[in-house]
Simulated assay, not measured.
Amino acid sequence: MRIGVVFPQTELGADVGAVRAYGQRVEELGFRHVLAYDHVVGADPAVHQGWDGPYDVRTTFHEPMVLFGYLAALTSLELVTGIIILPQRQTALVAKQAAEVDLLTTGRFRLGVGLGWNQVEYEALGQDFSTRGKRIDEQVALLRRLWTESSLTFEGTFDRVTGAGLAPLPVQRPIPVWFGAQSPPAYRRAGRLADGWFPQMSPGPKLDEAKAMVAEAATQAGRDPATLGMEGRVSWTGDAEELREAARRWQESGATHVAINTMRAGLRSVDEHLAALETAADALEVRKAD
């Protein structure tokens, strides 16, 4: 099981030095990958009365693809979007950005995608929130063609490409596409289309049910469920033994990857985040695992 970290998007602010220090120290500690969340704009609760989303206009987010271009020059970590909200973005542009990150990391990139929940953000990006489920199916098919064919023609419901292609193509052909999933339709979509998926719950009966739906959908699509990756997430609470137990449960549940999340743990600086991750690295013996 490969062990990585969740980049603390909402707690490092605009401090570029903190981004650099974080990426370099995470690699020194022996973690294998960095996963970053995605939001382009935040909603202003003063305008959107009754706003109850987990993030708003004051919550800081670096743009993942640009962030990864920076980290690719500083580290040899695998870089993972967890997740890019794909239907609110232009498909060909995402394909181009992903191909570039894949080149800059020499093939150490996973594109995690999902539908998102923020209608305000869809509006700001000029996309239809109501068709996002149908659109993502088409987008994934087009992404894979753009990453593997030097020239293609594609006519779908939402996208059209006529005799065009990316240059240069990525190292990975195609780049692995992982899905965020937290509902039965999303589990089935992951089983049909994904190279791996990110459960939004802890190991237990609900995860077992979700895994069964993913596996059934994969089988029905003529795919081997055993080839799909699964990345769990463990939140840092300050208790190393609790962290070890949570990681063990993920491994027993069949996770191929796990990410340690230090956000919302009361940590006030990049140094505190890194100190927590140093304790986590020791507890999980990530250097030995490497």
Rank of each mutant, 00 (worst) to 15 (best):
G69D: 14
A98R: 08
V19C: 00
A265S: 14
V177M: 01
R108M: 06
T91Y: 13
W178H: 01
G114C: 09
H39P: 06
E11K: 03
A181T: 09
M65T: 07
P174M: 01
A99Y: 14
R135W: 12
A289S: 02
F154E: 04
R188H: 10
E252K: 09
T91G: 06
V270S: 01
D128W: 12
Y37Q: 13
G114F: 06
A186E: 14
E278T: 07
G254A: 01
F179L: 07
Q49F: 01
G232K: 14
D195F: 11
V41C: 06
R287C: 00
V80R: 15
D290Q: 05
A221E: 12
A46L: 09
R264H: 15
E278D: 11
A247P: 14
R89E: 12
P203L: 03
D159Y: 04
G42Y: 13
A167I: 11
L12H: 09
L103R: 13
V101L: 04
K206E: 15
D195S: 06
A255W: 10
D44M: 05
F179Q: 06
R188D: 09
S151C: 03
L228N: 11
A194I: 01
G180I: 04
H273W: 12
Q200E: 14
E63H: 07
A276I: 11
L142Y: 10
T237H: 12
V140A: 04
T157L: 00
G204Q: 13
A255C: 02
M65A: 05
P54L: 02
G156P: 09
A259L: 04
E27M: 02
E155D: 05
G156I: 03
S202P: 14
A275Y: 14
P176S: 02
V34S: 04
V140C: 03
L115K: 10
H33Q: 11
R249T: 11
G133F: 10
G254C: 00
F61W: 09
T59Y: 13
A289P: 01
T81P: 07
L111A: 00
P54A: 04
N261H: 14
A167H: 14
A190C: 10
T227E: 15
V80F: 15
G163V: 05
I260C: 01
S150C: 04
G204I: 03
L274M: 02
V40L: 08
E121A: 01
F31A: 02
V161P: 02
E123Q: 14
G116H: 13
I3Q: 02
L284S: 06
R32N: 08
E278L: 02
L267I: 09
D290F: 03
D128S: 06
A217L: 08
D282Q: 10
Q182H: 10
S130A: 03
A217H: 12
E285Y: 12
E138M: 07
F198K: 07
A247M: 07
W236N: 02
P64Q: 12
R264P: 14
P87G: 04
A240L: 10
F158P: 05
G196E: 12
S235K: 13
P203F: 02
R244W: 15
G4T: 05
A72H: 07
R132N: 11
R268Y: 09
R233Y: 15
L142S: 07
G50H: 00
G107N: 15
A43C: 08
L77S: 02
R145W: 12
